[in-house]
Simulated assay, not measured.
Amino acid sequence: MRVSDEDRERTTQQLQRAFTEGRLTQMELEDRLEIALSAKTYGDLLSLIDDLPAEQPRVGDVVELESKSGNLKRSGDWAVPRRLRVSSKYGSVDLDLSQAVITHPVVDVEFDLTYGYAKIILPEGAVANVDAFQSAWGNTSTGGVPSRPRPGALYVVVSGRAKYGGLTVRYPRKRWFTH
Rank of each mutant, 00 (worst) to 15 (best):
E9I: 12
D44A: 00
L52V: 02
F19D: 08
K73P: 03
L24I: 03
R10Y: 07
A54Y: 12
E55V: 12
R17D: 14
V80K: 00
E34T: 13
T12L: 06
L15A: 04
A79G: 01
S67W: 04
D44P: 00
M27S: 15
L46P: 00
R10F: 02
R58N: 11
A54P: 10
S38H: 14
S67G: 12
P57H: 04
Q16S: 12
L29R: 02
S67Y: 09
G43F: 06
L45T: 01
R74K: 11
R32L: 01
R23K: 14
K68N: 15
Q13D: 14
W78C: 05
L72S: 03
G60N: 01
E55S: 15
S75V: 07
E30R: 05
A79V: 06
W78T: 10
P57I: 00
L33R: 04
E28H: 01
E55L: 15
G76R: 09
Q16P: 05
L52D: 01
L37M: 15
L45F: 06
Q26P: 02
T20R: 12
E64I: 10
A18V: 01
D61S: 10
G43Y: 07
R23I: 02
R23T: 08
G70H: 13
S38C: 05
A79Y: 07
K73H: 11
S69R: 14
F19I: 03
S75F: 09
T41D: 06
E55Q: 15
G22L: 08
V63F: 07
T41S: 10
